[in-house]
Amino acid sequence: MQARQVIEVRPARASRDGDGVAIQRITGMGHAGMDPILMVDELRSNYREDFAGGFPPHPHRGMQTLTYMKAGGLIHEDSQGNRGEIRGGGAQWMSAGRGIIHSEMPTQDSRGLHGFQLWVNLPAAEKMASPRYRDVPVGELAVLAGEHFTATAVSGDWQLDDGAVRGPLAELAERAGILDLQLRPGAGLTVTAAAEESLLAYLYSGSLEVRGQSVGPQQLLVTGSGDRWHLQAGAEGAELLLLSGRPIGEPVAHYGPFVMNTQAEIEQAIRDYQAGEFASA
């Protein structure tokens, strides 16, 4: 077995999206070490004015989104007639395929909000497929608890020390695995993964020890090749999202909410959206 090493630490950048929603964002469009993960957004505020405007209707093509809420609630509606509401611990998955228009708005009773949205790429052969959507309430997520950790699986198969857990979101698992992991103070944990897969960790609370240095929140750890990764929590413990996926290895062309393979395809997506074709995709 070969141990994975952290080859890059990417800090999140403060940004705003939608109707002025405050987020911490890490982008990886075309980044080989993150493939197929395109972007990681963290939404976290106790002040409703930071997120009250939500994300009004907007289009997507050529990628998938995974929204995972830790606290507060969001309501999803889209041009396919789907509507879903998730609250603390639930997840929503959407594959935009050839085109969809959706909105994500905070529930009226959300006084604070903490959640994540991930963008996951689609290969060229699937970018023009039919849109799909699924809600996963918190009660359907799989939980594995050990002496020094608790792991909640959204998608993918995860091997942790001597335990294993599988997330229920099979629709996303073919492209990416998502695991919410809490490590107790000073605890260590080994994650086993296929050597050819990308394996990342987005730290959202506490710290991890990496090569003798402490890495704090709102940073993404990118690993190199290997089939096991030992995570070591700092003195305050660590809370993180583990992300895995088999790299697609195709060119990435990105413009706003569209992720395709070429600039010509981006320009076609813009024309199709302006012509109103996404509403009936």
Rank of each mutant, 00 (worst) to 15 (best):
166 R>M: 10
203 L>N: 01
172 L>K: 02
124 A>G: 10
120 V>Y: 00
221 L>K: 04
234 G>M: 08
176 A>K: 00
152 T>M: 04
220 L>W: 01
188 G>T: 13
228 R>N: 09
228 R>H: 15
128 M>T: 09
107 T>A: 13
190 T>N: 05
127 K>R: 14
219 Q>A: 06
193 A>S: 09
191 V>L: 14
126 E>K: 01
131 P>A: 08
218 Q>T: 12
230 H>D: 09
105 M>W: 08
132 R>A: 06
226 G>N: 03
169 L>H: 03
167 G>M: 03
185 P>F: 06
191 V>H: 10
218 Q>E: 11
200 L>Y: 04
129 A>Q: 15
133 Y>F: 15
109 D>S: 09
205 S>D: 13
136 V>S: 03
196 E>W: 12
181 L>G: 02
158 W>P: 00
208 L>Y: 05
231 L>H: 12
203 L>G: 02
159 Q>G: 06
232 Q>I: 06
233 A>S: 12
195 A>D: 12
142 A>N: 05
196 E>M: 12
174 E>C: 11
211 R>F: 09
120 V>K: 00
202 Y>F: 15
225 S>A: 15
235 A>S: 13
195 A>F: 12
150 T>K: 12
159 Q>H: 13
141 L>E: 00
126 E>P: 01
233 A>I: 09
220 L>C: 00
185 P>M: 06
120 V>W: 01
171 E>K: 00
195 A>T: 13
189 L>I: 14
122 L>S: 00
105 M>P: 02
122 L>C: 04
155 S>R: 00
107 T>M: 09
106 P>A: 07
172 L>G: 03
129 A>R: 14
204 Y>N: 01
135 D>T: 12
127 K>D: 07
171 E>F: 01
230 H>L: 15
216 G>A: 11
213 Q>T: 12
170 A>V: 11
204 Y>M: 04
115 G>M: 05
121 N>V: 03
193 A>Y: 00
145 A>V: 15
165 V>Q: 01
106 P>V: 02
220 L>R: 04
230 H>P: 07
141 L>Y: 01
105 M>N: 08
130 S>E: 13
209 E>M: 15
105 M>Q: 13
207 S>I: 04
132 R>L: 05
109 D>P: 04
113 L>R: 02
130 S>Q: 14
173 A>V: 04
112 G>I: 08
162 D>K: 07
113 L>T: 03
106 P>C: 08
143 V>F: 14
105 M>G: 07
182 Q>C: 09
217 P>C: 03
